[in-house]
Design a binder for these strands. Structure first.
Lengths: 300, 300
DNA sequence: TATATTGTTCGAAAAAAACGAAGTAAAGGT
DNA sequence: ACCTTTACTTCGTTTTTTTCGAACAATATA
């Protein structure tokens, strides 16, 4: 771990062009700076200045370090400058990213506690792929990501996944489609037109495994990244589609379809992903607490 | 000035979700962290955590600070990681930006010492407007900018201008143009077709003042940001053009033109702009020393 | 050659950080 | 309701780090 105090001295020395000048600006004696500078070089194991004549000259490494120090300390300065004009009662905001495979009504269920809290919260929602959202999360442009899977270990982003709940999946179809089905569930799926989440999605692999196990080979009409789009296609008689059992009622009403069967072997899970290990954002904490205790309380 | 040690503790506490966990990771006792954290809050004059229950919760400000701390410490980490794989004898490079109004042969004169130094230097040149180049300089993507004026005080970029030299300007024209001129210099300029640096350029205002003072009103055929382009137009009989007197000979040869007059009242100046107050890049230092002693040694 | 300027090395002094002991306060189990 | 565990804080002391004064070495300038 570099000593940022030392790095700061180095930065000032480089900027001012010498220890003497730097010591003036820092209100320190030259011997202090000189010593601390040597400590930094010792720690890094490489020299930052070459002592030439009675002055200093940046080495190649020194210039490299300077470019980083520049960024680091201007960030620090910017932070200090902005910190005091921040707390002026601007409404609390919560920036959420929702992975597009997560059904909208599930997202709403999960997030609604935020809007019902004591002090008002402005919520900013964004919908996109997991990768995109994790990138945003990493640079703190999001407070929380709602996903259907934990953070992939392959991804370099650091972050912590918190499981919110899980439930089985239900199969839906419009009446028009249902009429054409010969058998009862689940045999009716074999050869039937079907809409599925695109391969690569977490839920999809579970569905595929289950279909395979039961020797059911539906005709896959279309694949979707966005679950809402899939349901709209379903509503227009494009094929059988699926949704978490927990929102059966909403789906039947909203998309004019009926539930033709339920599978509890395949579980759809929902996760909240945050940057901090333990969630420190009060609104996020509230959301997660509520979700865990009551999101799918009516089924296991 | 924030204490980066304190900021680092804050960062770890936020990441780990508590003082207890953080103290473990930092190999420190909780009371130390707690104390240092309070110091930081005292210094900033605002609380970063709200103590809720037996734990901590980030405040709005805390989350803001965290986002900066995140950037700062990942920069620091990145720096440490890269620092050791850097010094592997990659050739020294010098990244120079040349403002486009600076004549190419002047730029060459100024920069050539770099190529004649003891250990070889690879030079990377870029040509653009002053604004663009200063932005690049600020983020250390350039080591040096060559300009025809000192750094404008209106610009927020910090940087130091070092004057390299100055010389008068000469007027040039092709023989075809010269034939048409009725009077001798400088009266011949009145009403004559002329190429000039665009308004807004530093040299242009000097030229304009001089022309005005002598009641000379040439017909301005075209204006250029790029001095080389102006000379090419001049070569093609578009009009009278100007260049620093120091490169008279080169201009006459290269652009098939003749010098029709010299003005020492209008001075063209050249500056090197660097990030550091005193230039610490050895190659840059060499360039500047050479320039100052011999760039325009044959005239004042 | 004298002189001012710049950076360095050595202690001792001052300041900051870290710890042990003890205390408060909330959550969890009995 | 009562004990236990967990988590943060406060206080005084010890340890570590930073800073300075004094003396010194090297280089440029007059």
């Amino acid at each position: 771990m570099v000593n940022y105090k030392h790095l700061h001295y180095f930065w000032v020395v480089a900027k001012e062009g010498g220890i003497a000048r730097a010591s003036e600006r820092l209100h320190l004696t030259p011997q202090t700076i000189s010593g601390q500078l040597s400590s930094l070089e010792d720690h890094l194991g490489i020299s930052l200045f070459s002592r030439v004549g009675r002055g200093l000259e940046l080495t190649e490494t020194g210039r490299f370090v300077l470019s980083y120090a520049d960024e680091i300390f201007s960030l620090g300065g910017e932070m200090e400058e902005l910190i005091h004009q921040l707390p002026a009662g601007l409404p609390k905001t919560l920036k959420v990213g929702v992975v597009d495979v997560v059904p909208k009504s599930i997202a709403h269920r999960i997030l609604s506690p935020a809007l019902k809290m004591a002090d008002p919260v402005r919520m900013i929602c964004q919908e996109s792929s997991l990768d995109t959202l994790l990138a945003e999360l990493a640079v703190h442009r999001l407070d929380l990501v709602l996903a259907d899977r934990p953070i992939p270990s392959t991804v370099s982003t650091r972050g912590y996944s918190h499981k919110l709940g899980e439930c089985g999946v239900s199969f839906f179809a419009t009446k028009k489609i249902v009429k054409k089905l010969k058998n009862k569930f689940p045999q009716c799926l074999d050869g039937a037109p079907m809409l599925l989440p695109s391969s690569g999605n977490y839920l999809r692999s579970g569905i595929d495994r289950w279909l395979d196990k039961h020797r059911l080979y539906p005709r896959v009409v279309a694949e979707f990244d966005d679950s809402a789009l899939m349901k709209v296609f379903g509503q227009e008689d494009a094929g059988i589609f699926i949704a978490p059992s927990a929102i059966e009622a909403e789906v039947e009403v909203q998309y004019h379809a009926v539930c033709i069967g339920r599978v509890n072997e395949v579980k759809e899970r929902f996760y909240a992903i945050s940057v901090e290990r333990k969630v420190l954002h009060p609104v996020v904490a509230e959301i997660m607490a509520t979700a865990r205790e009551s999101l799918f309380s009516n089924n296991t």
